[in-house]
Nucleic acid binder design. Sequence first.
DNA 1: TTAGGGTTAG
Length: 620
Amino acid sequence: MLKLKSQAFLIRNHGMPRFPKFTSAAALADTTITQTLIQEVPQPRIQPPGLFITALQSSRNIFHIRQVHAQVAVNGILQNLTVANKLLYMYAQHKVLGDAYALFSGMVEKNAVSWSVMVGGFVKGGDFANGFRTFRELIRCGMPPDNYTLPFVIRACRDLMDLKIGRLVHDIVLKHGLLSDNFVCAALVDMYAKCRVIDDARQLFDNMPNRDIVTWTVMIGGFAECRNASESLVLFDRMIDEGAVPDKVTMVTVVNACAKFGAMHKARLVHDYIRRNKFYLDVILGTAMIDMYAKCGCVDSAREIFDRMQVRNVRTWSALIASYGYHGRGKEALEIFEMMLSSGVLPNAVTFISLLYACSHAGLTEEGLRFFSLMLDEYAVRADVKHYTCMVDLLGRAGKLDEALKLAESMAVEKDEGLWSALLGACRVHGNLDLAEKAASSLLELQPENPGHYVLLSNIYARAGRWKEVAKMRNLMTRRRLKKIPGYTWIEIDDKNYQFGVADRTHPQSENIYAMLKSLSHKLELAGYVPDTNFVLHDVDEEVKVDMLYTHSEKLAIAFGLIATSDGTPIRITKNLRVCGDCHTFSKFVSAITNREIIVRDANRFHLFREGTCSCGDYW
DNA sequence: TTAGGGTTAG
């Protein structure tokens, strides 16, 4: 009795609300009753623990949980582990981690559930340091970690991308023979994949005797994350063949992989699967599908999905705005933005990035400037480096290099490589050598290991005829043992994808492809195409440079496209690196002399070449 | 009590 009184005293003096007597769980859950404060601390009555558990389960807010906590304390039921754990869980659910930990550390008796709820509470609440600390405490106490606690700890390693601790936890898993547990193993697969150690993830996955749908999903998502979207789609097919049944999360993951892969036939197949299996187009699946269609080159299909969705949120609207942006359809992106505002959805930082991107790629300079001000003044969205990058790109494309530099210099946030790349790109287009050198030196300082920066600066020097500097850049690359990563191009014909590298001769129809290029070259040059040899870095004769230019992977793919299709369908090309300026011009001329449409995906941007013009507002 | 999902610059 003394103990109960002192608990009541503690509660009263710590500002906890006092509590009325409850005769049923329903009454306890009724907030109108529970919020009534009474003057006297009631005499404790012993009540069945089940009553409190039911009350906790129906708790909607933290005040109510605290009231039940007080009631439980006074009734002496806090010693009941099930009740205490439930209380702990409710605090953790509501992310009131201070209260949760106070309760946890005061618990005289703890079991595996108490520990996992506490560790999980910290991890789910994003407090990884305390999550790890509590886990270490568990190990020190001599408690064996179980299959409930470990997934949380592994998740913390994943979110922190801390492979070192991740491997230590993996050792603990092995030591306790818990690798056979699907929850633990799936968490490990996911952790390795997100830390980009895809081989380790795959090895664990392959050795699992009974994979469940979550494990399939994390492995499929893992490959997409590691830029191997084609492997993730192969895995999805294998999963279906093996009889596993995907759920909605799997489908969102697969849709996401399709978006990264950029193959329209796959997108259509996955959409068919979703339709056939009657997956409801909820806000997450719908938004993912909008993104998929847009990144596979069909913004109109993305719009159809958007129109069919019953619930849309800010991410859905932003995805559609970005979709129009990728395709250079800036005006439509702005219309969608207006519609979004009219429907009462507030734009966020991502919405404005999508909008500014759309403006810059459609040449809508004034509109972009206006939206940037609107963002800062009306919507109080703080500009981060990505917004500034869009603005530098917008001004740079419009030739306003001084304004772009001024804006970059005025920004309070730290400049990153993306911002300098945008400035350097603008300098390349407008031939501003001084500024290019400034941007490039910042870039080389930030990322000395990225060969792309050396190549870009070297091309700028080449265009200005500064051959000494070109040689200097090439020597620097050699000294630093950097090689330009070869770019690949894919072409989608019917339901297949064909890959080409530079000077590729592995395709069985190589002879025909090179013959086609040769015959094209004559016609193209008659039509006015002049190969831009500045895009060839090597110090060789001009004639050799022209030959080298004709072996670019994108040109090989286009030539193959002309050979392999004759029905007038668009030639669909996907690049894994940025399209080179000369290939861009080449595509324009090919579309003019062959009367064929060519759709090129360049990163996430699309170029539609038709009758010698390109849909994009890029300045090549 | 436990694992997996959607929009964003260069």
